[in-house]
Design a protein around this nucleic acid. Structure first.
Length: 1084
RNA sequence: GGGCCUGUAGCUCAGCCGGUUAGAGCGCUACUCUGAUAAAGUAGAGGUCGGAAGUUCGAGUCUUCCCAGGCCCA
C-alpha cells in the first residue's frame, strides 16, 4: 500500500480535532462503536448521573464526562456490552431560578401572575434547549454516547416511577406530614434546604441586637429579671421560653435600680459593651440549674397570639447555651428558630408561627400584623422601651444566612412538610453502602457517617416545576399516596379528562385539576400543592431508565449498575444518598457496585471557580484554545481524590510534556518510513490487533524476537516495556486507578522518545535497507500502533489520527477507526525483567556521565578516555559489562571501567573545623592543617565515623573537630545520585582532541547544510580553512568527515581567498584561543 | 462536640506491600546537544517528610497522642 500521510510536526491540534469529528460523523463511527459488542454476553452497566440541563458546560463538567467516556471506552474495547445512555436532569428549583432570571421575575407572585402553566412550559423549553447544547458540547469532547436516547428526569416514566417508590414507602407507613422550622426566603416565598444555605448562603451582616429584661414573676423573685439578648428582634413577639445552661454560674446583679441575672463570666464584657453601667453590683451567684423552672412575663404577652403560651413562659435547661456572647440566657421562640423548635418539642412547648410565606406577620400580632418581619425592628424597640424592658441596643456583625438567589435575609418559618421516615430504611442503606466499592475508599466512611446522622428525608418543596407529589391529604386527616397514572385515573372523580387532554404529564398545574375521593370519608380531595425534592428525580434513574416497570427482564440484566461516577463533595447527601435510599426501599439492594468520585475543580492558582469571579472557564472556549485531547489528558493524569487546579497554563504544560513528544515520535516515524518506502507489509512483528490479516491471530503471542531478524536488545527492551505497559494499564483501569495508568503511558512515551528513538536514530538514517533497519521500523511501528489503541479511551482524537494513518488506511481488513479496535493484550513472554533493569541502569549511568561531563565543561562531542561507573548491586556489576557499548556511545568515551576495580571513585579530604579549632589552638592551626593533609585520610575518616579521638603529630582531635569531604579522584569529574556515581577522566590526549575537532567540524557542516536549505540527501563539496596543526588533526579523520556530511570533494587547509570562490555558505568555528576554522560548502 | 480528609522542595503534587542515600513537574539561573526543533538534555540547588512518642532489624509509609488547615454533621 501507499506511503503514510506525512505528519507535520507543527500540527494545529484543534483544527485536526474538528476534522476527526467530521470524519467520525460522516463514517458513523460512534454508532458503529456502540454496536461493537451487541452480540456479547458480558455486560458493563453504567448508570449516568444526570447533568443539570440548565446552562452550557464548563470545563468542570468536561472533567466528569471525561471519566465517564474513558471507562466506557475501555470496557467497550474489552468487549463488554453497554447501554451508553446519557442523562439530563431537568426538574427542580435550579431550573426555575434560571427561568425567573430570564423572565425578570422577582418573586413567586410574578410567577403566579404570569401563569404557572406558562412558567412550567418555559422551564421545559429551557431544559430542552440546554440538553441539546450540552449534547453538542459533549460530542466535541469526544464523548461517544447514544445521544438520541438520553433520558430526562422530567419524563413521565421517571416521574411515575417515583410515584411507585413513594407509594411503596406509604404502604409501609413511612410517609408522614411533619412540621418543622426551616430557613425561608420571604421574597421568593419558599423554604431553602440546609444544603442550599451551606454552599453559598452566608453573608456578614450587622444587626441591631437588643439586650432586654424578662421580669420574673415567681414569689420571692419579684423585681428580678432575666437579661436576654437576641439578634432577631422580630422573633420576640413569638417568645415562649428562656434557656440557661444548668452548668454555668449566673450572676445576680443590681444595676440601674433593677436586679438582673446573666452568666457570671460575661460580667466584664457586658460592662465593656455598655450593657451594664460601671456601678453594676454583684449581689449573689446561682447555678444555672437553680434558675430552671422560674416563670417570667414575656415582652409581648399582651398579643392575642400569646394566649396559648402565656402560662408556658419559664426557664429551661439547655446545654447548648454558650457564654461566648450574649448573656448566657437564650430567648426561645420555637415557631421562629430551628434550634428553638427542637428545644420546644423536647419541653412540650407550643410553637407560635408569626409569619406567612411572604414574611408578613399573621393575625394576632397586634400592631405587627400585616408588617414585614424585616420592618418591625424599631416598633419592637419602642414597645420595649415603653414597657421599661429595653436595656441596650448594640450593633452586632455575624455571618447570617441569606437567599442564594436574591441575597434577602432569611427568616425561620414553621411549615408543614412531607417526610419519609428513615428509621427502617437506614439499616438497609448502611448494609448497601458497605457492600459498595468506593473510590476513593474513604467515600464509604463519608457516606456511612452521613447515614448515621441523617434525619427523616424532607421530600416536599413549595414550588411549581418539579415532580408532582402524588399525595392527597383530606381535611378529615386521612391522606393517601398514589403509585401510578393508572391508579390516578381509577381514583379520579374530577378533572381526569382535562388532564388526559393536556398530555397526562404529571406536572403542575395540569395534574392539580385531578381530584380523588377520600377513601375514609368520601370527600373530594386535592393533590397537595407541593412538588418533590429534586434528588428524588435523580435517585430513581437506576429504575426508571432501564425499564423497572415497563420491562422487568431487561431491568434485571442491567441492575445494579457496575459503575457510577460523580463529583463527591455534595453527592454523599444528594445523588449517592438518594440512589441508595431508592434501591434499599424498592429492592433491598445496592444501586451500584462501584462508585467513582472526584473532587472539585479550582483555577490555576487554586482558587474556587466562580462565574461571578470571572475565573470559571466555559467548555467551548477551552476546547477552542487548548484542544480537548490536552484537556482530557490533564484530567486523566490527575488524582481524582484531590482538587484539580485547571487552566491554560496547565494545559500548555501537558501539551508540551506529553502530547508534543508523542506527536514528534509519530512524525519522526512517518518521515523516515516514507523516505525508505517502508510500509506495514514490511513489518516483521505480527499485528496484535483484534482482527485477522492472515488468519493467524496467535502470531503476536508466539513472537520471538530473534537477532536473525535484526532485532537488537534495544528493540527487545522497548517491546518489553510496551507489554508491561499494557499489563499495567489494564490492571489499573480495571481497578479504577486512573492516574497510575496515565503515569505509566507518560513514562513509556518518555522512554520511547528519549532512549529508544534517540538511540535508534542511526538505524533509520542509514541508506542500506537491511534487517536491522527493518527491525527498528517494525518495533517503532508496533509501539506507535499499540499506543494509539492504549490512548484511544484517553485522547480519542490523537489516537485516531495516528491509527488511521498508520493502520486503517494502510492495512487491509483493519477496522476504520481505533475506536472499533479491541484493547491490546499483553504478551507476557516478551516482558524481560533483565533487559529492562539493564537499560534502566544504562539510562541512569548515562545521565550521571553527562552530568560529570557538564561539570568539567567537556562537551559530549569531545571523546574522552574513560568513564568510571560505581554501582550498588551485584547484578549491576554484571550488567555493566553488557551495557558497555551503549555507555561508550552515549558518553563518547573509549572505555568503561567498573569503579570496584580501581578501589572506588571518591576519596576523603580532611579539613580542620576552624570554628572549633581556631579559638582553641590559635596559631597552631597551620600545623594542624598540614598534619591533616599529610595523614591517611581514609584512616581519619574511619576514626571520625567511629567517634574516636584522632591522634596526630601530638594533637588530640575530637571527631567533631575535623570536617570530612568526599572528593573526586584526581583527574576525574564525578557526579553522584542515590549511591550511584559516574566519573569521566578529564585528561584529553592529542589523539582524542583531534577526534573532537573532527566531530566539531562535522557538527558545523551539518548545521550549515541545514541553514543553506540542502536536502538530507544532497551531496556537497567542502573547503576547510585552518592552521597546520588542525589540518593534520582533521586529515586523520577525513573519511569520517566525508561520510557524515555526504561530501564528494574535500579540501582541507586551504586559504579560502586563494581559491577566489564565491561560496555563499561559510561558517567560522573558534576552537580555542589560537585556532579557528572556516568551513565553506557548495551543493554538487 | 462527632466524623472524614489533608499536611513531603518556593509552588502543585507523586511516593501504590514498611526496605538502599525521599522523587516529578513548574518557576529561577547557567550550560549542553540538536537533520524529532511549538524540541530535548544537564547542572545549581533547595527537605527537622506538621510535632512527639511507640511498634520494627528498618518508618514519609503502621499505631497513639498533639498541632494546623479543609470538608461534612451537630
Amino acid at each position: 500500500m501507499s506511503h503514510f500521510d506525512s505528519v507535520d510536526p507543527k500540527v494545529d491540534f484543534v483544527a485536526k480535532e474538528e476534522e476527526i469529528l467530521k470524519w467520525w460523523d460522516d463514517n458513523d463511527i460512534p454508532a458503529r462503536y456502540r454496536a461493537l459488542n451487541d452480540d456479547k454476553e458480558k455486560k458493563f452497566s453504567f448508570i449516568d448521573g444526570p447533568i443539570t440541563a440548565n446552562n452550557a458546560m464548563g470545563v468542570h463538567h468536561a472533567w466528569g464526562r471525561t471519566y465517564k467516556d474513558l471507562f466506557l471506552r475501555f470496557r467497550n474495547m474489552q468487549g463488554y456490552k453497554q447501554r451508553f445512555q446519557n442523562g439530563f436532569d431537568g426538574q427542580g428549583l435550579w431550573i426555575e431560578v434560571e427561568v425567573e432570571k430570564e423572565m425578570g421575575f422577582k418573586s413567586k407572585r410574578d410567577i403566579e401572575a404570569f401563569g404557572v402553566g406558562k412558567f412550567v412550559e418555559e422551564c421545559r423549553k429551557r431544559v430542552d434547549r440546554f440538553a441539546e447544547r450540552i449534547a453538542d458540547q459533549s460530542k466535541r469532547l469526544g464523548y461517544f454516547m447514544d445521544w438520541d436516547n438520553s433520558y430526562h428526569t422530567k419524563s413521565d416514566e421517571n416521574n411515575y416511577t417515583i410515584w411507585h417508590f413513594l407509594k411503596t414507602c406509604a404502604d409501609k407507613g413511612w410517609i408522614y406530614k411533619g412540621r418543622d422550622v426551616m430557613p425561608w426566603c420571604p421574597r421568593c416565598g419558599t423554604g431553602l434546604s440546609q444544603h442550599e444555605i451551606v454552599t453559598e448562603g452566608y453573608q456578614d451582616i450587622t444587626h441591631d441586637s437588643p439586650y432586654l429584661k424578662f421580669p420574673l414573676i415567681d414569689k420571692g423573685h419579684e423585681g428580678e429579671n432575666l437579661l436576654v439578648w437576641t439578634t432577631t428582634p422580630w422573633t420576640l413577639a413569638a417568645n415562649v421560653a428562656a434557656a440557661v445552661n444548668p452548668e454555668y454560674t449566673y450572676a445576680k446583679v443590681e444595676d440601674r435600680g433593677s436586679i438582673i441575672y446573666f452568666s457570671k463570666s460575661l460580667f466584664e464584657s457586658l460592662k465593656k459593651d455598655h450593657v451594664l453601667t460601671d456601678e453594676a453590683k454583684l449581689i449573689d451567684e446561682v447555678k444555672g440549674s437553680e434558675l430552671v423552672g422560674l416563670r417570667y412575663k414575656a415582652p409581648f404577652d399582651e398579643l392575642p397570639a400569646q394566649d396559648e403560651v402565656r402560662d408556658q413562659h419559664r426557664v429551661l435547661a439547655w446545654d447548648e447555651v454558650g457564654e461566648d456572647e450574649g448573656t448566657g440566657i437564650v430567648h426561645t421562640a420555637p415557631g421562629a428558630g430551628a434550634e428553638d423548635f427542637k428545644l420546644g418539642n423536647e419541653n412540650g412547648l407550643t410553637p407560635i408561627a408569626p409569619l406567612d410565606q411572604n414574611g408578613i406577620y399573621i393575625e394576632g400580632f397586634g400592631e405587627f400584623t400585616g408588617k414585614s418581619a424585616a420592618d418591625v425592628k424599631d416598633m419592637v424597640f419602642d414597645s420595649l422601651k415603653e414597657k421599661g424592658l429595653l436595656v441596650r441596643v448594640n450593633k452586632y456583625t455575624h455571618r447570617y444566612p441569606v437567599c442564594w438567589r436574591c441575597s434577602t435575609e432569611l427568616v425561620f418559618r414553621l411549615v408543614d412538610e412531607w417526610f419519609i421516615n428513615m428509621d427502617e430504611i437506614r439499616p438497609k442503606m448502611e448494609k448497601a453502602t458497605k457492600e459498595m466499592n468506593w473510590y476513593p475508599e474513604f467515600g464509604k466512611a463519608r457516606e456511612l457517617d452521613w447515614l448515621k446522622n441523617m434525619q427523616d428525608w424532607m421530600i416536599s418543596k413549595k414550588r411549581y416545576y418539579g415532580l408532582a407529589l402524588p399525595i392527597y391529604a383530606c381535611d378529615c386527616g386521612h391522606f393517601e399516596v398514589l403509585g401510578s397514572q393508572e391508579e390516578l385515573k381509577e381514583r379520579a372523580v374530577e378533572g381526569w379528562d382535562e388532564f388526559e387532554a393536556s398530555g397526562a404529564s404529571p406536572h403542575r398545574p395540569w395534574i392539580d385539576g385531578v381530584k380523588i375521593a377520600c377513601s375514609e370519608c368520601g370527600e373530594t380531595v386535592d393533590r397537595v400543592q407541593d412538588v418533590g425534592n429534586a434528588w428524588l428525580d435523580a435517585g430513581i434513574v437506576p429504575f426508571s431508565t432501564i425499564g423497572y416497570q415497563s420491562d422487568p427482564e431487561y431491568w434485571k440484566e442491567w441492575f445494579p449498575a457496575d459503575w457510577i461516577s460523580e463529583s463527591f463533595p455534595g453527592q454523599f447527601r444528594n445523588w449517592f444518598y438518594s440512589l441508595i435510599v431508592m434501591a434499599a426501599v424498592l429492592e433491598d439492594s445496592l444501586p451500584a457496585r462501584n462508585v467513582f468520585a472526584y473532587a472539585l475543580m479550582r483555577d490555576e492558582n487554586g482558587a474556587e471557580m466562580h462565574k461571578s469571579k470571572g475565573n470559571a472557564i466555559w467548555f467551548e472556549e477551552a476546547a477552542d484554545k487548548m484542544g480537548v485531547d490536552v484537556m482530557r489528558w490533564t484530567y486523566s493524569r490527575h488524582n481524582p481524590a484531590s482538587n484539580l487546579n485547571f487552566g491554560y497554563k496547565t494545559g500548555d504544560e501537558v501539551r508540551r510534556q506529553f502530547v508534543i513528544p508523542l506527536w514528534n515520535i509519530y512524525s519522526f516515524f512517518t518521515t523516515y518510513a516514507n523516505l525508505d518506502n517502508w510500509t506495514p507489509a514490511d513489518c516483521t512483528i505480527p499485528s496484535s490487533f483484534g482482527f485477522t490479516v492472515d488468519g493467524d491471530t496467535n502470531a503476536y503471542e508466539a513472537l520471538i524476537m530473534s537477532t536473525d531478524e535484526g532485532f537488537s536488545e534495544l528493540d527487545r527492551w522497548i517491546l518489553s516495556e510496551l507489554n508491561q505497559l499494557i499489563a499495567k494499564m489494564t490492571d489499573n483501569l480495571e481497578s479504577w486507578q486512573l492516574p497510575y495508568a496515565a503515569e505509566a503511558v507518560e513514562q513509556f512515551v518518555e522512554d520511547l522518545s528519549n532512549w529508544y528513538v534517540r538511540r535508534s536514530r542511526r538505524r533509520f538514517w542509514k541508506t542500506e535497507g537491511d534487517k536491522d533497519k527493518n527491525a527498528a521500523y517494525s518495533t517503532l511501528y508496533t509501539c506507535l500502533t499499540t499506543l494509539s489503541r492504549l490512548l484511544a479511551p484517553f485522547t480519542p482524537f490523537i489516537a485516531d489520527m495516528m491509527y488511521r494513518n498508520l493502520v486503517a488506511e494502510r492495512v487491509q481488513h483493519a477496522p476504520d477507526s481505533v475506536h472499533l479496535t479491541s484493547w491490546p493484550k499483553s504478551n507476557t513472554s516478551l516482558i524481560d525483567e533483565d533487559v529492562m533493569n539493564q537499560t534502566r541502569l544504562a539510562i541512569k549511568l548515562a545521565s550521571l556521565g553527562r552530568s560529570a561531563r557538564a561539570q568539567s565543561r567537556l562537551k559530549v562531542r569531545q571523546p574522552l578516555g574513560e568513564f568510571v561507573a560505581e554501582v550498588r548491586h551485584d547484578w549491576e556489576h554484571l550488567a555493566l559489562a553488557k551495557i558497555e557499548n551503549v555507555l561508550k556511545e552515549e558518553l563518547n568515551v573509549k572505555s568503561i571501567v567498573n569503579a570496584s576495580e580501581i578501589g572506588g571513585l571518591l576519596g576523603f579530604e580532611i579539613k580542620p573545623n576552624l570554628r572549633i579549632l581556631g579559638p582553641k589552638y590559635g596559631k597552631q592551626i597551620g600545623e594542624i592543617r598540614n598534619a591533616l593533609q599529610a595523614a591517611d585520610a581514609d584512616e581519619i575518616a574511619r576514626a571520625v565515623e567511629a567517634d574516636e579521638t584522632i591522634s596526630i603529630e601530638g594533637f588530640e582531635l575530637a571527631s567533631n573537630e575535623v570536617l570530612i569531604e568526599r572528593v573526586a579522584l584526581e583527574g576525574y569529574a564525578v557526579a553522584t545520585d542515590a549511591g550511584y556515581a559516574g566519573a569521566v577522566l578529564t585528561v584529553v590526549s592529542e589523539e582524542l582532541k583531534a577526534e573532537g575537532t573532527a566531530r566539531e567540524v562535522v557538527r558545523v557542516i551539518q548545521n550549515l547544510r541545514k541553514t543553506s536549505g540542502l536536502e538530507i540527501s544532497d551531496r556537497i563539496n567542502l573547503l576547510i580553512s585552518c592552521s597546520e596543526d588542525v589540518t593534520s588533526a582533521l586529515m586523520t579523520h577525513v573519511n569520517y568527515i566525508v561520510e557524515e556530511t555526504l561530501t564528494d570533494n574535500i579540501d582541507i587547509g586551504v586559504v579560502l581567498s586563494d581559491h577566489g570562490i564565491s561560496v555563499a555558505s561559510t561558517e567560522t568555528i573558534q576552537l580555542d584561543d589560537e585556532n579557528k576554522v572556516i568551513v565553506a560548502l557548495e551543493k554538487v
